[in-house]
């Protein structure tokens, strides 16, 4: 090891994620194109199931952005899922078309998240997690006071009936595909950006992050708002395909259980892991979803087992074992004149 006072910074090169991940990005782009054609050759059931999978992927990726990349463990992200659905209902009620309402509703939800962030992000770890759960419950109760929601009963997005069932199914699918692709792209860019690097620094050591000039609150707010926006889009996609809106379902804490499960099983802190986790969860839901309480208990036990014995999840463990990275984050440095 040699400490040098003569510094020559000539002759270095860096390799970025988009260079390393080019093959994976191309496969992703191809997959997107193939998926876009599914409504032309797949059955209605397949289209519906894939739309459901899109909701799960969105939720998993958003929770990983928050907890995996920024260290913000929330058990109240259902607040934004529910609000996404609720704002869409409200906007349609004042005359907006459903699909624009989904987008605008999610944007309003992002604004609400910005307001919530001002106090929630002052709390640390466990306090933050619980405060978010409380926030979700308070928002649910407030939403239930709205006459159009009719308390526990809930309501339906009747405006969806303007589309023929077949067409509605396909539009939902394409809408979901676009939203998932857009949000995956945004998250991939974000975690590799200056903001993403700062978020990971805060996650690793908040005090050290401050000492190198990271504006901790601002970085956390950006991640928090994006994650809320994504959850809101998942909520409106859920509303688009299920049409009914019941506060207890949309604001239910089971969503947090699902998100935790998908991210822990798939692979926390990896980009691909949560997507894999969502697929695993989707398959389990298909085969065991009817077992009710036992099914939920089984999900919980599996998530705990993963946290204990395979904390990197399926994807993370596999990556570490094989030493491969499809979509790595960060920068690799090559110095040409090695000392």
């Amino acid at each position: 090891m040699k400490i040098s006072s003569q510094v020559n910074t000539e002759g270095f090169s860096t390799e970025h994620w988009y260079q390393v991940g080019r093959p994976a990005l191309m496969v992703g782009g191809l997959l997107f194109l193939v998926l876009a054609t599914v409504p032309f050759w797949g059955s209605g059931l397949v289209v519906d199931k894939l739309t459901t999978l899109f909701v799960y992927i969105l939720l998993a990726v958003m929770w990983n952005l928050l907890a995996g990349y920024a260290g913000l463990v929330s058990v109240g992200q259902q607040a934004f899922l529910g609000l996404g659905g609720y704002f869409a209902l409200r906007l349609v009620d004042i005359g907006m078309s459903p699909y624009p309402a989904f987008i605008v509703g999610a944007l309003i939800c992002a604004l609400v998240a910005l307001v919530i962030s001002v106090f929630a992000l002052r709390l640390k770890e466990g306090e933050f997690a619980i405060a978010m759960w409380v926030t979700a419950e308070v928002i649910r109760i407030l939403v239930m006071f709205d006459p159009i929601v009719q308390g526990e009963t809930g309501t339906s997005l009747l405006a969806m009936n303007q589309y023929a069932p077949e067409l509605r199914r396909n539009i939902n699918f394409w809408f979901g595909l676009l939203v998932v692709a857009g949000m995956l792209g945004l998250v991939l860019w974000l975690v590799n950006s200056r903001i993403g690097a700062a978020a990971q620094a805060i996650r690793d050591d908040e005090e050290a992050a401050k000492s190198i000039g990271i504006r901790v609150m601002r970085v956390k707010q950006i991640i928090f708002v994006v994650a809320a926006f994504g959850c809101a889009l998942a909520g409106s996609l859920w509303l688009a395909s299920s049409v009914t809106f019941q506060p207890r379902t949309y604001f239910g804490v089971q969503w947090t259980v699902f998100m935790l499960f998908m991210v822990l099983v798939g692979g926390l802190k990896t980009f691909e892991g949560p997507i894999l986790g969502a697929i695993v969860f989707f398959l389990l839901q298909e085969f065991f979803g009817d077992y009710g309480a036992w099914y939920l208990a089984g999900l919980g036990v599996t998530a705990i087992l993963f946290a204990l014995y395979a904390p990197n999840g399926i994807w993370g463990e596999w990556q570490n074992r094989k030493g491969v990275r499809f979509l790595p984050t960060g920068v690799t440095l090559t110095l040409k004149n090695k000392e």
């Binding site: 690097a197 990971q200 690793d204 990271i214 802190k269 920068v331 690799t332």
Partner: peptide, 13 residues
């Protein structure tokens, strides 16, 4: 240190 990053990424941040 930021444990989840490489040495160079620590410095780049």
């Amino acid at each position: 240190p930021f444990l989840g990053m490489t040495v160079f990424e620590n410095l780049l941040t």
